[in-house]
Amino acid sequence: MIQLFHVAKTYPGADEYALADVNLNVDKGEFVFLTGPSGAGKTTLLRLLFAAERPSNGQILIGNRNIARLSRRQIPALRRSIGVVFQDFKLIDTRSVFENVALTLDVRGEPRRATRSRVEAVLKRVGLLHKKHAAPRHLSGGEQQRIAIARALVAEPSIVLADEPTGNLDPERSLDIMNMLNDVNARGTTVLVATHDPTLIERFRKRVIALEAGRVVRGGG
């Protein structure tokens, strides 16, 4: 499903590689933890997967698409096949909870009625249906994270990428979020979670890919 071959990434002006010679393989329907200390390259790797960054070297295959060679015009289609949960949530403050989640379907031109029923269904699933008219800034960090997850899941993507989805949450909320992602994975979605929280990794006992200083040190497969 996801394959990286000798992928390297350097940022302009930086002396060191953000990623260096990364090779890894994630199968369809797998749940994988991407772990490592801060600055190990977890976020960079995820950003390469949804084409927010271009690799400096190497090839990235998702399904049968070579991400490294995608043209600008092909990027939206790739992003529509991937649900991304951002570390900083990336919610639009001037839009309601409902509108934030519906955005994923709006950009696809989904009919209004279908959008409403799908958004309400996913908000119910993350326990936020009663707050669909609220502005995200009036909600707690845990609730904002659940909106971000709802937005990533509403279009039922084949891959979900989550960057530190439990970053600023208390243990109980973290468990909630991870159960949600586990549930999505149980339905056949490939899930990649970047985290540096060892308790989550121990608790869920999934495959772990460890990164250090931009290199895969364990579990590249």
Binding site: A52, P76, L78, L103, T104, V107
Partner: peptide, 16 residues
């Protein structure tokens, strides 16, 4: 600007 960036991250085309 931020809204535009988020739209693009969830798959919006340039014309959208």
């Amino acid at each position: 600007q931020e809204e535009i960036a988020i739209m693009k991250l969830v798959g919006a085309t340039d014309s959208f």
